[in-house]
């Protein structure tokens, strides 16, 4: 035993000598490294943007970052930009919520009830090729250009992604896990609630995250063609007036708002559903 200890301490001393003591832990160093790359990535984009703006296209077609920032402040101060962001976000929120709830509910049933799956899956598999943009003309005829039309289009862009991923999650629930629960005396309802639903969570979360991105992608064309507010409307108006700097403000805002929403989704699911996401 003493021999083991002494060789252990020897080893310890050797590594101590070889490695200088570090100020930061490995995890902290990794975070700093990641942040460094993110900063460099954006810096690179800005440089390219400047160069292309001044030397290739000229500042009208692609306004340089300075001009875009200059255009941003008055838009933000007047409250118009915030209003447009709010309108777009509320449409996304309503359409996405409905799409998720319907997709999730229908997906759970279709994954569990064979007849329902076989009956509805052909429709789902074909209809999902109709993008929300393709549905705009008919939706305007059905619902006019009111809020309902926007909700319907975001719903359309959301529901199939949640649906398909939920079905996959239900079908991928290990048969062994269900059989094990049957042995322990589980009823059909208990299997569904305590085994299938939790096992499907990782797939449902992936579907909902994809659908969230799709909701943002869906709302802009809807607002371009039929709206009097929102980020899509802002793009459309700026285009008519040839205000390229305002167009770029809107484009950057769409990126930032979309990214932040996705991050919020990611971190909240990671926080609240960590147990279910750790394993597939």
């Amino acid at each position: 035993m003493s021999a083991v200890v002494s060789s252990d301490t020897l080893q310890h001393e050797k590594t101590q000598k070889m490695r200088r003591p570090r100020l930061l832990s490995a995890k902290q160093r990794e975070i700093i490294r990641r942040l460094g790359f993110i900063a460099t990535s954006f810096l690179m984009a800005f440089v390219v943007w400047y160069v292309v703006s001044y030397y290739v296209t000229g500042p009208f077609l692609i306004p340089p970052p300075s001009k875009v920032i200059a255009a941003f402040f008055p838009m933000a101060e007047s409250g118009q930009l915030l209003n447009d962001i709010g309108m777009s976000l509320s449409r996304v929120a309503v359409g996405y919520s409905f799409g998720s709830v319907i997709g999730l509910t229908l997906g759970l049933f279709m994954g569990r009830v064979r007849v329902l799956h076989d009956l509805l899956d052909p429709i789902v598999q074909t209809a999902r090729f109709l993008s929300p943009t393709a549905m705009i003309p008919i939706v305007i005829i059905w619902f006019g250009i009111g809020e309902l039309a926007k909700y319907a289009l975001v719903f359309w862009g959301t529901v199939s992604l949640v649906l398909i991923n939920t079905i996959a999650g239900v079908l991928r629930t290990p048969k062994i896990r269900q059989n094990a629960a049957l042995c322990l005396g589980a009823s059909e309802a208990q299997i569904f609630r305590l085994i299938v639903l939790p096992s499907a969570v990782p797939f449902i979360v992936i579907g909902m995250r994809l659908a969230l991105a799709s909701a943002f992608v869906s709302i802009i064309p809807a607002e371009l063609l039929a709206a009097d507010s929102g980020l899509g409307y802002l793009l459309q108006q700026s285009s008519l007036l040839l205000q390229t700097d305002r167009i770029f403000v809107a484009l950057v805002v769409i990126c930032v708002v979309g990214f932040l929403t996705d991050q919020l989704f990611y971190w909240s699911t990671t926080l609240f559903l960590r147990r279910y996401l750790a394993v597939v």
């Binding site: 290990p174 059989n179 042995c183 969570v201 147990r275």
Partner: peptide, 20 residues
């Protein structure tokens, strides 16, 4: 059918247990 007086024990513990 299956009953809790006859409990099955599986080789794949990850699939059989509730990981959450």
């Amino acid at each position: 059918g299956p009953g809790r007086e006859r409990v099955m024990f599986f080789q794949d513990a990850n699939a059989a247990l509730l990981p959450w």
